[in-house]
Write a protein that binds this DNA or RNA. Structure first.
Lengths: 117, 117
DNA sequence: TTGACATATGTCGATATCGGCATATGTTGG
DNA sequence: CCAACATATGCCGATATCGACATATGTCAA
């Protein structure tokens, strides 16, 4: 039960740095496996396996082109992750807003008593 | 070398579903360990360990309050992840824009010849 | 101090990961 | 058909993960 299957969950698929690098490269456009192998300094089987994982999760799609195989990004699948992260960005902003409100409050009403503690 | 240390990398820390749930709960506000244990249905050691990981990564901070320990979110640390994901959101939009341009182009110039391959 | 409560830590077992190497599959050209 | 190239898969070993259980640490109250 060690960890959620890397092949089931986008969060896990993206947890690997090499996989993130591959996605970064693919963000540039459709690429061949060997192009990725060259760009990053990874082994060909390494890249193929990572692409398999990314493909299973749906972050990437491949099409055959002669004896090459072209992979491209499907960024749509990052939406769950984007949504999740964005939720916290809002929490962060909300906190800053509250701090802002607090500061304005402080300026509006000059301190009448020493703050307790 | 199995996988990047869960304690070093925010992406890995967040890869675990239970850890994400804990962060979700903490997004509600500062919470006690036992409060988290109750809310989610996790074991106390489980929660403590996950909090340890989240704390090591900096996503969460704890302060002692009597015999309780209150944990709260530090969403600032999600920024690297937010930035990374956002980059792909932009890629996604860019692609949609290009598709949009292409469609407009098609409408502006009625097809005179079949496209060469 | 002692005991109850809150939390943290240690150990163990089952499992999955990742990288490396060898090799299978598939495609093109001669 | 065969050889060269591109990619995918299979197996292995080292390692890290996660959950479960027991237990250590720390704090308050009587």
């Amino acid at each position: 039960m060690a960890r959620a299957a890397t092949t089931t969950d986008v969060f896990n698929a993206v947890a690997d740095a090499h996989r993130r690098e591959i996605l970064d490269v693919l963000a540039t456009g459709e690429k061949t496996v060997s192009a990725i192998v060259e760009t990053l300094s990874l082994t060909q089987p390494q890249v193929s396996k990572h692409l398999r994982v990314l493909s299973d999760v749906g972050l990437v799609r491949g099409r055959a082109e002669g004896r090459h195989r072209l992979y491209r990004l499907d960024p749509e699948r990052l939406k769950p992750m984007h949504d999740w992260v964005t939720k916290f960005e809002q929490a962060m902003n909300a906190r800053l807003d509250r701090l802002d409100d607090y500061l304005h409050e402080l300026q509006a009403q000059p301190p009448t008593q020493g703050e307790p503690q």
